[in-house]
Simulated scan of single mutants.
Amino acid sequence: MKSLSEIETTVKRASKAAGYSWGVSEETGKSIRLLELFSLPGIKHLNEYLNQKNKSKFESLNLISENNSSLNNPYCPITLGVSFLDQINVLENLKKIEFKNVAYPIIFISFISRSSEIIGKKINVKIDEKKMLLNLNVNIFSNFIDQEFPKIANTIEVNLLENEDNFTNDEWNNLYKLSEETFVEESDSLKEGAAGAGLTDND
């Protein structure tokens, strides 16, 4: 079994050999490493994309807006991903971003997952009819289980979620009230041993 370090290094070198800069190649290595860590087909789809890259034309998108569409050729998932990473602090204010016609979207997803960690928010992604929840780059939850990831996504919808508790105030208050039973009442001996001036002056 290949180590994650070996995967990252090999992907970085292969991406450079395919024509990307060392900076972009390094980001690609980190992203594919992430996919393999989560048992997603990063190496497989990167291989297919790099082989296809020499035969087909893919579009780059440097400045991302609320609605992004490539009418002719699909977007390159790597340059799109790097752009998303670079602009995430601005894109966070858009809440919802849409991309149309993206090649090998699973590669793009890995960059979005890393962006989730940067802004400290969960990101909900919809690839055509399939959904994924990116959780601060800690895990990726999806309903793609046992299904092949598409090579072209007609539409990718990215929703940046506000941080909210998954429980109600009543549920929290009930739990907190129960936890209070472990609190220790402050006794005279505890007061005497507390921080601050004691009974004896050592000066």
Rank of each mutant, 00 (worst) to 15 (best):
S25V: 04
M1V: 10
N72L: 10
C76S: 15
E192M: 08
S116Q: 02
N154Y: 09
R13A: 08
T10W: 03
G120I: 01
I109C: 01
T28R: 00
V24P: 07
D86P: 02
E6S: 13
N54C: 00
Y176A: 06
D201F: 02
G23T: 08
N174K: 10
G193Q: 08
D128R: 01
L199Y: 14
E6M: 07
S5Y: 12
N73A: 10
R13T: 11
N143Y: 06
Y104H: 13
N68L: 03
I112L: 07
N137H: 06
A153M: 06
G193S: 11
N62C: 01
N73P: 04
P77M: 00
P41H: 01
P105D: 02
K53W: 00
E129G: 01
D201T: 05
T9G: 00
S116P: 12
S60H: 10
I106V: 14
K177S: 08
D201G: 03
D128L: 05
K151D: 13
P105R: 00
Q52L: 07
I78S: 01
S115D: 11
V138H: 09
V102C: 06
W172N: 11
L175C: 05
S179M: 07
E148V: 12
S70D: 09
F108T: 11
T79L: 05
Y75W: 12
K122Q: 13
E171G: 10
M1T: 11
V138D: 15
G81S: 12
Y20E: 01
I7W: 06
N89Y: 13
N54E: 15
F111K: 02
L134I: 09
V102D: 05
S25I: 04
N135T: 14
F111E: 06
V82D: 06
L133I: 12
N67R: 08
N143Q: 04
K122M: 11
G120Q: 01
F183P: 08
A14N: 09
L46Q: 11
N159W: 04
F183G: 08
L40N: 05
I112G: 04
L199W: 14
K131I: 12
K96L: 13
E117M: 05
I109V: 14
I109P: 04
N135H: 10
A18L: 04
G42L: 05
A14R: 11
N166G: 15
P41F: 00
N173Y: 08
L199G: 15
D86Q: 10
G23V: 07
K44G: 00
D170S: 11
Y104S: 10
D165I: 07
F58Y: 15
D128F: 06
